[in-house]
Design a binder for these strands. Structure first.
Lengths: 223, 223
DNA sequence: CGACGGCTTGACCTAAGTCAACGCGGGTGG
DNA sequence: CCACCCGCGTTGACTTAGGTCAAGCCGTCG
């Protein structure tokens, strides 16, 4: 609710999506970002931040909003490997060019930090990179070995935790995004949401607001 | 074949699995490893290198052999998030304790580099960490959005590439390991191997030696 | 008010899982 | 030295979770 309002008030002001502004406000950020020249990129929904194959010239930190990182197969199948929300750093690449796409999901602000990376910056960003690695590996367990119910439960709990463990979650992303993140179809995602609602585990206020009524029941599902 | 012989000749000599030896031979290694004090750990098949929950006190590099990194659900379901072969570095952790298990698959030698990591080492290991991240994210695409045939094809091609793109592959791991890596059952893995054999895409010399007869046909499968 | 896109629900289908039997090869003990 | 055993792999018959296809709903926006 709060986040939603914030996004909308910004979206009114920042209708020129993709506009780049010099930024001098000190927010919470990764240490090295504070001492680097940086810009903030304001993005409309579905605005591409970088594309697969592009040279990787920067790191990115979500100021507000949400971002999806994904990859496509040639027949259009899509796998979202990560969602990133406020405070998180993304855009790491192994060999200087992007292997994934990054897009804003909703109206978002992205802090941009130009490369190259020196030794100090390496030390500062290593924890972020390792966090991303652990998250990806844990997500492999969810996708590789858990069923649809367990995947959705894990997704909701992860999202709740990253939004400060409040019981009410605002979903920035569509059912399609959730399906492509969890390796499921939108129909299956929808059915699991409905099942959780019928079981009293969650309440749905519209399609994009989820209240976790029994978070422990959800936790019990994903072991 | 060559690798297999190498492993067996070592295994005869190094029957005391888990024995730790001071090592001063200069091999191919990550830069920082050369200047760090290090040891080499010789492992029998299924020897645990570290366990989930343990304090992370070192980084590891495969000298020879192969390692599996995995995680368990409480009911025993297992997801292998990565296999590591000669030259590869593993054991990165985000907050000082291991979230995964690491085990030798076959007779292996593991170079051990004690932490903590200074700034120089950070810069040196960042590329390895980023490579692991990219691999994990690409594996998400395979597991999340590809069918059994595509998964096995991708697995064989990845293994071939990491063994120097020779057409003949020695599988260090069992069908169970492959299934737990690809999010499939052993029966499904076995059926796909048989299908590839019947189609003339591969030749099987015993269960653990695979000859890629038509690598391009396999490549065409996983887009 | 109507159209459109995102979401839900139902009926049906299929890829992969489960269960079970059997084959094979390497290791051991009689 | 041979016979047995055991663990790994293969194959077949059947089941099922989740995908596919299709219809309809609901909220938003022009």
């Amino acid at each position: 609710m709060l986040a939603h309002n914030a996004i909308h008030s910004h979206s009114a002001v920042l209708s020129k999506a993709g506009h780049i502004a010099r930024n001098d406000m000190p927010g919470q950020m990764a240490p090295a970002f504070a001492t680097q020249p940086h810009q903030v990129l304001f993005c409309s929904p579905n605005k591409e931040i970088y594309a697969q194959g592009e040279r990787a010239t920067a790191l990115y930190q979500v100021e507000f909003g949400a971002v999806r990182i994904y990859r496509l197969l040639s027949d259009g199948r899509r796998q979202i490997s990560a969602f990133h929300v406020a405070g998180e750093v993304f855009g790491f690449e192994a060999d200087g060019h992007h292997r994934f796409f990054a897009e804003a999901i909703c109206h978002s602000a992205i802090r941009v930090c130009r490369l190259p990376i020196d030794a100090d910056l390496s030390r500062d960003i290593l924890p972020s990179a390792l966090l991303a690695l652990v998250r990806a590996q844990e997500h492999l367990l969810v996708i590789g070995r858990q069923n649809a119910t367990e995947r959705v439960a894990a997704f909701l709990l992860d999202l709740a935790e990253r939004q400060g463990d409040l019981p009410q979650i605002e979903l920035a992303m569509s059912r399609t995004d959730i399906g492509d993140y969890l390796g499921l179809t939108i129909e299956t995602v929808s059915r699991v949401f409905s099942k959780f609602r019928e079981n009293g585990h969650i309440r749905l206020q519209g399609a994009r607001t989820v209240v976790l009524l029994k978070p422990d029941a959800l936790r019990a599902m994903c072991v």
